[in-house]
Each structure stands twice: as structure tokens, then as C-alpha cells.
């Protein structure tokens, strides 16, 4: 019995030493999380992401917002006429704007799983300036402008073709019916050409 009790003390001491050494070399229980890129669950409602290329500027998201924190900023092009801008300070992250967005299959305004929204030196001015804006707005606008130019070119070409066809018709008709009265349709054609140049 005595020998056993005598052995107990060193055994427990060694156990404690082992436990302490283990704890010394074990990884920390806490860690800095915001640069680790931790992902949240499937439907997590965090930071907004606005895709200006997909946006059609229908302002359904601004209407669906219960706290009116979405402003539609006019872009100057025809499509999209305006893009949403979310005032993050007032947003309650309910996700109803995402539900309301009609673009398919991908939504133009989405709530991502990024939840680190850290502001340093938080003042009221900084909070009011904290806004989620469309990320690729300039590219989208350039694209939209190019598209508009292309469309205008096509329109003008179509107009030209139409007028040329009309002129040809008029000429042919004039030549068939009254060869003496050729001047009138030609003058009309010239007038039309002039007006087109003005356009």
C-alpha cells in the first residue's frame, strides 16, 4: 500500500506536466477570422453585390425595400436607365430586393455571404458614405454605349436602304409613266437626302 501511494504523487505530477506542455504547443483557441475567408451557409444574407451588366433598371428592388435604402442612380444610357445603390448604413439585410429582381437566371442584385463590414474611425459621415455600388458599372456603361452606337448605325443603314429603294422605285415609275416629268421625283429624292444628312 505504501509503495503504491508513494508512486501516485510522481505519476500525477508527470501527468500534469504533460498536460501543460501539450497546452503550450497546441493551436490557439481563438483566431483572427476576417482574413481567413470563412464561408457562411447557403442563404446567408450579407454584403450586396450589384451586377450592372445584368441590371435592366426596372427599380423593382427599390420598391421592394422596406426601409427605402436603395436609390436608383441615373446612368445616362438607355439600358439600364438607372442602377441601384444601397445605403449600407440603413439596410436591414432582409433580402427582399433579391426576391424582387426579375432578371433570369442570375439576379442583378444579390446578397452574398461576405459579412465582414469593418469601418475604421467610425463617424456618422463615414457611415453615411458607406454604400454598396455596382462593381462593373463603367464597363457596363461602355458596353451599353457601344451597343447603342451599333443600334444607331444599324438603324441608319436600314433607313438608307429604304430610301435608296424608294428612290429606285420612284425613278422606275417615273421612267415608265412619264419620261418628260423626270425632274420632280429627282428633286424630292434630293430633298430627302438633304434632310437625312441633317439628321
Amino acid at each position: 500500500m505504501e509503495a503504491k501511494e508513494a508512486l501516485k504523487i510522481p505519476i500525477e505530477a508527470t501527468k500534469k506536466v504533460v498536460r501543460v506542455t501539450k497546452a503550450l504547443f497546441a493551436p490557439k483557441a481563438t483566431e483572427i477570422w476576417w482574413d481567413k475567408g470563412i464561408r457562411r451557409e447557403l442563404h446567408y444574407r450579407g454584403k450586396h453585390i450589384i451586377n450592372a451588366e445584368l441590371c435592366i433598371g426596372c427599380s423593382m428592388c427599390a420598391r421592394a425595400c422596406p426601409v427605402n435604402c436603395i436609390d436608383m442612380v441615373p446612368t445616362g444610357v438607355k439600358k439600364p436607365r438607372a442602377v441601384p445603390k444601397v445605403r449600407a448604413n440603413e439596410c436591414i439585410f432582409c433580402g427582399l430586393c433579391e426576391d424582387a429582381c426579375p432578371t433570369k437566371p442570375e439576379k442583378a442584385i444579390k446578397l452574398t455571404d461576405h459579412y465582414s463590414m469593418i469601418l475604421e474611425d467610425v463617424t456618422w459621415d463615414k457611415l453615411t458614405e458607406y454604400i454598396f455600388e455596382p462593381e462593373n458599372l463603367e464597363e457596363a456603361l461602355e458596353k451599353a454605349k457601344k451597343m447603342e452606337e451599333l443600334l444607331e448605325k444599324k438603324k441608319q443603314e436600314a433607313l438608307k436602304k429604304k430610301q435608296q429603294a424608294q428612290q429606285a422605285k420612284a425613278k422606275a415609275e417615273a421612267g415608265k409613266e412619264k419620261p418628260s416629268a423626270e425632274k420632280k421625283p429627282q428633286q424630292e429624292g434630293k430633298l430627302q437626302k438633304e434632310t437625312k444628312g441633317e439628321e
Binding site: 457562411r40 451557409e41 447557403l42 442563404h43 446567408y44 444574407r45 436591414i92 439585410f93 432582409c94 433580402g95 427582399l96 446578397l111
Partner: peptide, 12 residues
């Protein structure tokens, strides 16, 4: 609730 709706308390 978070897995379902994305928020823990104000789930909407």
C-alpha cells in the same frame, strides 16, 4: 434558422 433563412433572429 440561419441555415434556412440566412439570419438567426430577424429571419423575414
Amino acid at each position: 434558422f440561419e441555415v434556412y433563412s440566412g439570419q438567426r433572429i430577424a429571419t423575414a
